[in-house]
């Protein structure tokens, strides 16, 4: 794993997002969906739909990171693109009822940083191993 930056990134980000998803369940209160939510670590606003998304993304990244380099590369790229899309859409839905994940500024910064690292790793690194097939 230490030779593959994609597996390293997927495993670390997966573990962190799983932890964030679990911790978020304790602070979201009765907010399941919508603009209102609880504050995680006093900064990141989450509701339960947001927590479920974190848990699913964390599980996907962690599984891919522990599985293989091509799986980690594909998952990093996909999740990075989704986060980037979320960040762009967030500009247009800020302050409207469409903000069903209760996203705030800190969430956007975290998603942007995650998108940069995940997309960068997925698109630019491990190119030689992406097409390699495991020996059978």
């Amino acid at each position: 794993m230490s030779q593959s930056p994609n597996r390293l990134v997927a495993t670390i980000f997966g573990a962190v997002y799983l932890l964030v998803g679990v911790l978020g369940l304790f602070v979201a209160g009765g907010n399941f969906i919508g603009q209102e939510g609880g504050l995680l670590l006093g900064i990141f606003q989450v509701n339960h739909l947001h927590n479920i998304a974190h848990l699913l993304i964390g599980a996907a990244l962690l599984t891919a990171g522990l599985r293989s380099t091509p799986a980690a590369k594909g998952t990093n790229t996909t999740v990075g693109a989704v986060y980037l899309l979320l960040g762009i859409v967030g500009f247009f839905i800020a302050g409207t009822a469409a903000n069903i994940l209760a996203l705030n500024t800190a969430d956007h910064i975290l998603h942007l940083a995650s998108a940069i690292v995940l997309l960068g790793a997925g698109l630019a690194l491990d190119k030689s191993s992406a097409t390699a097939r495991p020996a059978v």
């Binding site: 967030g90 500009f91 705030n104 910064i109 940083a113 960068g120």
Partner: peptide, 28 residues
């Protein structure tokens, strides 16, 4: 990524969308 986020984040906060975003700690 840290440098670009450091430049882009205050810039995004200065846009119309950034001014609508929920400020830190508003609900807690």
């Amino acid at each position: 990524a840290t440098v670009v986020a450091g430049v882009a984040t205050p810039a995004l906060a200065g846009t119309h969308a950034g001014s609508l975003a929920q400020p830190h700690g508003e609900h807690g």
